[in-house]
Design a protein around this nucleic acid. Structure first.
Lengths: 246, 246
DNA sequence: GCGACTTTGTGCACCTATTCACAAAGGCTT
DNA sequence: AAGCCTTTGTGAATAGGTGCACAAAGTCGC
């Protein structure tokens, strides 16, 4: 029934679940690492272990792309790499601009994982005159005034915002006004954008806070020792605030 | 029924959904920003807008902590800040070690969002002799050999791994062996840890890949133009691989 | 002190995601 | 060429998360 000829049509093309999309890059990385070790074939069990998920989930995820496995054998690594890459859109080049060249921007500019997966950094921009003109990872930092020109000239399709929080929304607006519809935001603010623009957020401190929550739970949880009897505290007293505010 | 005296007991203490936990830090940030503007009271509608979620979700999330709002009025900002901080465990100090002092490690070391939310960076470690001894954000970089000592001496409870991929698992093992049960991993690998240890992953390139997927969908999606007739490709041919491998 | 108005907290229905468990499929051995 | 063995792909059950819509609760003006 599923001959190799019509596999592409068999997959439910327009409906890959978001949760699956978020895991595909993880599978892809595991597959690349298998490729480096010259592994030609992998079972769902092995690949799932390498990706840190359970094997049923992996198989269901892959089944959304089509039937790329062989029963009794497993998946052909190379073929699967191609199919996932294609589904994620990594077989084409994406032009990225990095806005804000502080430590984080520098880390991003030098991150090998971008270039090797179809992402080409075409511009580094900053507002700080003392940074503009510097060469970072072989690329000159340009002034933020040139943002709109640069997006248009170089065909930027993804903007990475790595600026302080206060600057982020304004820059996001400019970027969106220039036609960019995908933004990766590292600034600790919620960006508001018009319909049709995708924003993904990476927040360093949120992850730490989630860890702290679980760590606290392991140690007994809040309320067990009641650091101060908060429930009896009349609102308006302020002394508890200094515990969390720098 | 819910007098202020027994609010703490009213909340369903041991069952805060994971999805809620992940949003609490976002609410907290929005609340801090309201505090700075001297706003004393906020409705679920307003706070939800500031946090970028819908108001029913916000109310349900907060209801998991207890009943901290007043019908007809809203939530008292200061009180809510305290309750969320306490639930997340931010009223106590967390001692953090940053392992790997490349650009990313530096960015993390200098990130203000840590210090101001109960996270104290107590050590910066690296294996590179030319980095050891340097002062980053007012703190001397120490040699990775001192990892175990340092964790024990300073009571490190959270380890942040910001090293190249190859080094990450080995360092993670050492950190876990020293008793750390919370790890924040920036290296692009899946870390395996024993039961009881929490790992959270932040992956810069995965987020970009997810954006690329959606960007591609906006432009018509894969399969619409069929860059090459992949379904008809016999497995074993390799020319498509160079499209995705650096 | 009362009624109108606002806003919370939540029951319910829906949707998405996860996991189990197994029939169907394919390869390999004899 | 037949049967055994492995592993996929997926139906069905379960769990988890979201959002609507509204009753309950509380404030504020008069």
């Amino acid at each position: 029934m599923t001959s190799r000829q019509n596999r592409n049509r068999d997959r439910a093309d327009r409906g890959i679940p978001e949760a699956t999309v978020a895991r595909l890059p993880v599978y892809l990385r595991a597959l690349h690492s298998l490729q480096e070790r010259d592994v030609a074939t992998v079972s769902s069990e092995e690949l799932a272990a390498a990706a840190g998920v359970n094997s049923a989930k992996l198989r269901k995820d892959l089944s959304h792309l089509g039937s790329y496995g062989t029963r009794g054998v497993g998946y052909e690594v190379e073929y699967l790499v191609y199919q996932i890459s294609r589904e994620l859109g990594l077989t084409q080049d994406w032009v990225v601009a990095i806005i804000g060249v502080g430590n984080l921007g520098r880390a991003l500019a030098g991150y090998g994982g971008f270039a090797s997966r179809g992402f080409r950094v075409a511009g580094l921009l900053d507002a700080d005159e003392s940074i503009v003109g510097q060469t970072i990872s072989g690329m000159a930092v340009e002034h933020i005034d040139r943002l709109e020109d640069l997006i248009a000239e170089r065909g930027v399709s993804i903007a990475v915002i790595a600026t302080p929080a206060v600057a982020a929304q304004g820059l996001c607006d400019r970027v969106v006004a220039s036609g960019v519809t995908s933004v990766l935001n590292f600034a600790p603010v919620v960006l508001s954008v018009p319909e049709g623009v995708d924003v993904r957020k990476v927040d360093l401190s949120i992850e730490l806070q989630i860890l702290a929550f679980h760590e606290q739970r392991k140690a007994g949880g809040p309320g067990d020792y009641e650091p101060l009897a908060a429930g009896d505290e009349p609102p308006g007293t302020t002394h508890y605030v200094e515990a969390v505010e720098a």
